[in-house]
Amino acid sequence: MSPVLSIENLSIDYLAETTVHAVREVSLTLERGEILGLAGESGCGKSTLAYAITRLLKPPAQITSGRVVFSSREGYDVDLSRLAGDDLRAFRWDKIAMVFQGAMNSLNPVLRISEQLEDVFITHRPELTKAERRIRSGELLERVGVDRNRLRAYPHELSGGMRQRVMIAMALALEPQVLIMDEPTTALDVVVQREILLEITRLRAELGFAVIFITHDLPLLLEISDRIAVMRAGLIVELDDALTLYTKPKHPYTRRLLSSFPSLTGERGGFVRSGDLGDLDGTELDETEQTVEAVEMESR
């Protein structure tokens, strides 16, 4: 199978007062139809990487080396760093779409859901008539399990889980080949989270897109991903299929991440209710990582 996306030696710096190396020579391939998990703590550069793939980085962030190549299903390759202007605009969302972090708050509160969904079609499929757009939007909502009647609703009339589904519908509007999801289920409770995850797995089987799933919740990734990359301080420290990563983690950081989740049914792991405290600061961010986090937040 040929990869749909290959990232080669990608480095990204934030040119702040002190230059911060947010992503350092990352190489990754994403196979067609695969779910690739990207795990790491805040400030490790995982969101920066995602933004770089969709070319959404703004100064002071700068890609200093490497490239991202997208190989389309139709058999041509596109070097994303070469795209500019209208080509880039047409490419984005059509081939690679993204579900953003805190997606529930990224809907425009003063526009109806229908207007926000149809906006995608107006931009990318100008040949569609108004009636066709309406029908396509309705189909999209139903595909993610939201009733067609909700097209007329405003975002505040929907629950968090439903807003999240609308965001996923929006990302799927043009049937992209790659979907990047940045913490799509944080802030949702476990039951809604489970529904959304099942939805994503079902839609992937149906539509055959590949997913880059970014989160810090490693148990969640272990459940849904085919392969998992663990990121720390801009580097990918370990990349393996889910089973191997869980049963034979090689890097000490992966082991530490795994042990920081108490298991629901099994042992207590690193959790001590009556023992000694250990090293409280052991896993806190170091100075450079904190800066990356600060710059990332600023640039949003």
Binding site: E41, S42, F271, L277, L280
Partner: peptide, 14 residues
């Protein structure tokens, strides 16, 4: 962040 959750909970327990 996940890796510091346990630390805070352990502190609360202590």
């Amino acid at each position: 962040d996940v890796s510091i959750r346990l630390g805070v909970l352990n502190l609360l327990a202590a």
